[in-house]
Simulated scan of single mutants.
Amino acid sequence: MIPDAMMPRLMIPGAMLTGTRLLIGACMVSFWAGILPATAAQAEGGQQLVDALDAAWVRVLKTREFRKIVSAHDLEDVIINIADCLPNPDVTPFPEHPAGKLQRVLDEERINVGVSSGGTLDEGATATRFHNMGEDILAAVFAELSTQYGVGEIDINYVTIAPPFPITSTLNSGAIDIVGQVNALGGETEDLRRRSSRRFTCTLTATRQILWLKKEGGPSWQTANDALNDPELKLCVGPLSNQLSKAYFDLPGQQVKTEYVQDLNICLARLLNGEIDAMVSPFTHERFFPARIDTTGDGKADTATAGQFRSIDTNIVAGTPLWVALD
C-alpha cells in the first residue's frame, strides 16, 4: 500500500479513463517495487521452502524410507506417524519456480539447521535415540529435495543453539534456515506460541507420553486421569516431555521437575528412591532405559532397572515438524 504522505506526488489530475488508470497503477507498482524491500519474495521463498519440505517428506513416506529409518533405530514401538500429510505425491507437488530462501538453498546446496544442545548423548538421555534418528530422517528429506531439483547433495549444517534456547528469534533472524526436530508443535518458545511465530511443515515424528511408576510401592493409579487429578503428584520429566507435562499437570500442589541432561538416569533414580511419584517419558518399554543406574549418589551404576516399573499411557501425543522463519 502507498503511504498517504506520498499520494499527492503520484496522483495525476484528470486521469479518468480506465486505460489511463491501469497505466498509472502499473507505474506506481514499478516505482514501489524499486524502492521497497522484497518482503513478498522473501515470504514466497519461506512458504516455498515449507512446501518443498512437505513434498519431500511425503515421498519419504511413500517409499517406506521413513519406516526403514525408524526400524533401524529400534523405535517402531515409540514413533507415531501422524497422518496430517498423506503419502500421496500427486497432491503434494514441489514448487515449480523456486524463489527466495528455497532458491538460495538449492544454489548453495547447503542448509543451516538449528538444534538445541542437550548435553551428553548416551543411554542415560532420552534425546539420544531421537537425535540420531532425526538426522537420518532429515538426510532422507533433503535427498528427495536434491533429486527433484537436479542439484548436488545438500549439505546439512547443524547449528547448536545454547541455553536459554532462543530458537524462534534465531530462526527469524536468518541465522538458521530451519529448526530440526527439537520443538513440538504445541509448545512455546521465548513466550511466543510456535504455531503463530513460525512457519511449519507436516508433522515428521510424534510420540506418546507415558507415565512410569514403581511396580511396588508406587501410587495406586490405574489410569491417566488418576494422575491428572492427584493434587500431591510429583513428576520428573525429560526435555521431550517438559512443556507438555507442565501444561497438563498444573493443579495446585502438583510438581513437575525437568531434567534436561541425563534425564533417564536422574528421574529413574528418584523414582526408585521414592522422591517422585512418576516419570513422564516417550518410551513405551523399559528396555529403552539404562540397564543399571546410580541410586545412591556414589557414582556407581549398580542398581538394575529391569522389572522395577509399570506404565500408564496418558493417551497424549506430542508431534514435531520442521520449522521455517515466519518472515
Rank of each mutant, 00 (worst) to 15 (best):
L10G: 01
V115T: 09
E190A: 05
L264P: 06
R270C: 14
M16R: 08
V70L: 02
W57I: 01
S71Q: 11
T63M: 00
G119T: 04
P89W: 04
L86H: 12
R193C: 07
D177Q: 05
T258A: 13
D298S: 10
F288G: 00
G150M: 04
T147C: 04
P231V: 05
P164D: 12
Q148F: 14
C267F: 05
L53I: 13
R199Y: 04
T170H: 11
W221E: 08
A227Q: 07
P13M: 02
G100V: 00
I161F: 03
W57Y: 10
G274D: 12
L271W: 02
L272P: 04
R64N: 12
S30Q: 03
C267Y: 04
E153L: 13
G217E: 01
E76S: 13
N273K: 12
A40H: 02
G14A: 03
V29E: 05
Y260V: 14
I266F: 08
G218V: 07
T147L: 14
F283D: 14
I316R: 15
V105H: 00
E190R: 03
G218Q: 03
G150D: 11
W323L: 14
Q42G: 14
I161E: 02
L326S: 15
I210L: 10
Q243K: 06
I24T: 02
F283L: 14
N273Y: 01
T305P: 12
N315W: 10
N172W: 03
F130L: 15
V141M: 15
C85K: 12
T305I: 14
F31W: 06
I80F: 07
V58P: 11
K246H: 05
Y260T: 09
E76Y: 01
I80D: 06
E96G: 08
P98A: 00
S116C: 05
A184Y: 11
A5H: 01
S117P: 00
P321T: 08
A15T: 07
E123R: 11
L36F: 02
A306L: 08
V324T: 09
E76A: 08
E135P: 00
F249Q: 05
G134R: 03
M28I: 09
D122S: 13
P95K: 11
E44G: 02
D191S: 13
L23V: 06
A139E: 12
G186Y: 10
T128C: 08
R129P: 02
E96H: 04
L138E: 10
E216K: 14
W221T: 05
F309R: 09
L10I: 07
I156S: 04
N88L: 15
P98H: 00
E96K: 11
T203V: 07
A318W: 15
G46E: 07
A306S: 15
Q42A: 15
P163H: 03
R195T: 15
T223D: 06
K300D: 13
I312Y: 12
V182A: 09
N315F: 14
G14H: 02
W221S: 06
L145S: 01
